[in-house]
Design a protein around this nucleic acid. Structure first.
Lengths: 196, 196
DNA sequence: CGGCAGAGTTACCCGCCGGTACCATCTGGT
DNA sequence: ACCAGATGGTACCGGCGGGTAACTCTGCCG
């Protein structure tokens, strides 16, 4: 109800819509839902964005930018590889912790939207992680072990996605060799963590 | 047009629908689209599945099962950790290569569906991978380097998704330390590949 | 006071899509 | 040859949701 200048309203919409879409997904949230969450009616949204597509797209660009620049800044002031790795991951996970809606919006995607499908796919991923977890045979608490296991599963997923998106053939044996050596070396390096 | 016994038709539907949904996504593909791809009309689908949800759900279960059992079989006949790692990844990537639709269906998900959103998010992921790629300072060809880079990005994504889904707080510094040590040890282990 | 400009609302249109009631057609068993 | 039942098609409904036209409200400036 309360009136706002256009730029403020626009930013408010972006802010609220990010949360709504992060939770419900593109198809799961209607423009009416977004409008209601903002506390306004539908046509107001269309005064600031040409279409639902347009709004969603703006959110992608904004959130993506925040993530990339955050990491970019954190890694720009050193050239040492190990240092950059550590700072990069540091910035990344700080971003996830602080800008959680943006992460869920960008990466928590997909059929992972209908809670029904979401849980089914979570279950599959969880089983994969359960299978991987015992490979970490170091004394660390269960929660950290599971997170690392999911990291390894994500590693496989990330590589696969790239291979499939790139199109064309690939030799699974060769890829598997590279990835598993990467994973194994990583696993060997896991240090027992001080209990928190 | 040609008539088929119920069980054969059911399997045909599952087979074709997997491809359709893998490409267009749950919301992007209508039941009419699926029916047309099968070469049949909508009510036929409803003779075999109670709802669109039901069909999609059956696909998740089937595809997930295929993946997990494939990997399970490959790793069941040894107890050595390294061995299991290698065989597991081997089976996994073979599955991706052979059952590509299933992979795209299960993991190629999300806003990654509208080609417009898909490319925007791909772009972000690709930039992240570009930033990671130089850390692999070994003589390998560019394609493999990019795949490994995407693997590392996926690793971060997998860990994050688990942390966020689990809910509650987490300490980003601690996680980053663990993941980056894992990644760094893995990176150091990458071997120059013989050019294919 | 008059009227203009920008912010918001009400009320609507229309097309798509999940789902269904009903009819047609084919095939196998006797 | 004929019936039964399963396989498949036609034609429809109902609602949801993106998008819009037209109106109202508020404040400001001459």
């Amino acid at each position: 109800m309360s009136r706002l200048p256009a730029t403020a309203r626009r930013e408010q919409i972006l802010d609220v819509a990010l949360g709504v879409f992060a939770t419900a997904g593109f198809y799961g949230a209607s423009m009416n839902d977004v409008a209601e969450a903002v506390g306004v009616t539908k046509p107001v949204l269309y005064q600031h964005f040409d279409s639902k597509h347009d709004l969603y797209r703006a959110l992608i660009d904004e959130a993506g930018n925040r993530m990339l620049t955050t990491i970019g800044k954190a890694t720009s002031d050193t050239t040492d590889g190990k240092e950059r790795t550590e700072r990069g991951f540091g910035a990344y996970f700080r971003w996830v912790a602080e800008d959680g809606d943006a992460f869920r919006f960008l990466f928590g995607s997909g059929p992972r939207r209908d809670e029904d499908f979401a849980s089914a796919i979570r279950e599959i991923t969880a089983q994969a992680a359960d299978a991987v977890a015992p490979l970490i045979d170091v004394e660390i608490d269960a929660a950290h072990r599971m997170t690392l296991a999911h990291a390894l599963v994500g590693m496989a997923e990330g590589a696969s996605r790239q291979l499939v998106q790139r199109g064309g053939e690939f030799d699974p044996e060769e890829i598997a060799a590279a990835i598993s050596s990467l994973a194994w070396a990583g696993l060997r390096a896991v240090q027992p963590l001080p209990n928190e």
